[in-house]
Write a protein that binds this DNA or RNA. Structure first.
Lengths: 143, 143
DNA sequence: GACATCTAGATGCAAGTGCATCCATATAGA
DNA sequence: TCTATATGGATGCACTTGCATCTAGATGTC
């Protein structure tokens, strides 16, 4: 019977959607203005570097919360740009394995030079020392 | 010189993006599963009903944080579905004025029947009484 | 009043996304 | 082994979004 959301829940919902759109939009705009690729590319590069080893598209799919066909095409574009490389996966003829290229690592560096300050400007600064608490609350919404 | 984001800021950033994607995705999926239009349509209907009077596309643009051309086409679709009506704006021959139709009001009702419980399930419930505090923190990111 | 400039909204085109389906390989069962 | 089914990833098609441009009406200047 507790179907109707509370007023606070609706407010939090509306602001979550809005705040994300505002902040993400501002950060993406800075990347674009700097002539850099969109954030999705950064995420792929980061996951690959973090993993420290080639990953399968399937793993990227899970970590990035993207649909299979979107990963496939995102990798197409990044491969075309020379930032990642595809190689067959030894253990399974259907699978493949994705690795970052040197150009990919360099690109992530260049992106971070814009991305980091943008995060600070559009999120870190307005939040001040509330960033930690906000992160804690948001974690309750994550799987 | 405080260009680099703090660690907390980066964590908050990552979770903001992710939490929004997870929750929004879940809610949108419920609407779609119920055969209802996407959330953007709800927002338009809500703004129109809230205003209590016809609004100009320009106003919708501002309230919904959408680009002009997106509003234009969103209204095309909603007009096609009979949920809103366009009328010329008396004071300015270039302008127009958008109003909800009865079908639009009915649709918003049907959407809320799915939307409300979905918000509660995917956001209200996991947050419990932290919804208020989360909303307060998020407001710092809004204009 | 004629002309330049500005603004509200529409639209053509490129790019991205969702959805369904397809292809190739793997695994399971008879 | 031969066939049925499941899984990793690619792809065709429709729809949405972004970007640039366009049209029509408004405003301002001389």
């Amino acid at each position: 019977m507790t179907e109707e959301p509370t007023e606070d829940a609706v407010t939090a919902w509306a602001r979550l959607i809005r705040a994300q759109r505002v902040v993400l939009g501002a950060v993406e705009a800075e990347l674009k203005a700097a002539g850099l690729p969109p954030l999705g590319w950064y995420d792929v590069l980061l996951e690959l570097e973090r993993a420290g080893e080639p990953l399968r598209p399937l793993e990227l799919e899970g970590r990035l919360l993207l649909a299979q066909h979107n990963v496939s095409r995102l990798l197409d574009r990044m491969e075309g740009a020379g930032l990642i490389a595809r190689a067959p996966f030894a253990g399974d003829g259907r699978g493949q394995v994705i690795s970052v290229t040197d150009a990919g690592r360099a690109m992530r560096g260049r992106m971070w030079a814009v991305y980091g300050p943008a995060i600070q400007r559009h999120l870190g600064a307005p939040l001040g020392d509330e960033a930690g608490p906000l992160a804690a609350l948001l974690s309750r919404l994550l799987p």
